[in-house]
Amino acid sequence: MADRKFSEEHEWIEVDGDVATVGITDHAQEQLGDIVFVDLPEVGTELNKDDEAGVVESVKAASEVYAPIGGEIVEVNDTLTDNPALVNEDAEGDGWFFKIKIADPGELDDLMSEAEYKDFIAD
């Protein structure tokens, strides 16, 4: 399994070569509740680290999704447009949000390991 990192904004990121897959964590989907809408970035969009990349909405509220690293969006998970509940079912698998071409691999160092993220959400 490739290396997975986590952000304080509750995104997970998995690096495969120079492209990383990003989604929201299982903890985040659980906090949000039933997800009814996902707004994804457009392919080709250039984002800086911590830029708003999209929005995820539950019945109750809307929450922003941020780019945990900078780069260019190369693919988005269109399945979520018609089936946003997939994020509840499999947040850290089939419910991924987008793939981003990593601009600066050094930015990955700022993110948490799985163990660090578990501690972070336990607080």
């Binding site: 509740g33 039933d34 009814v36 539950s58 019945v59 109750k60």
Partner: peptide
């Protein structure tokens, strides 16, 4: 209580 384990969607 904002929701129970059933969740808002199913409760609705």
């Amino acid at each position: 209580p904002v929701q129970y384990p059933l969740g808002i969607l199913k409760e609705h």
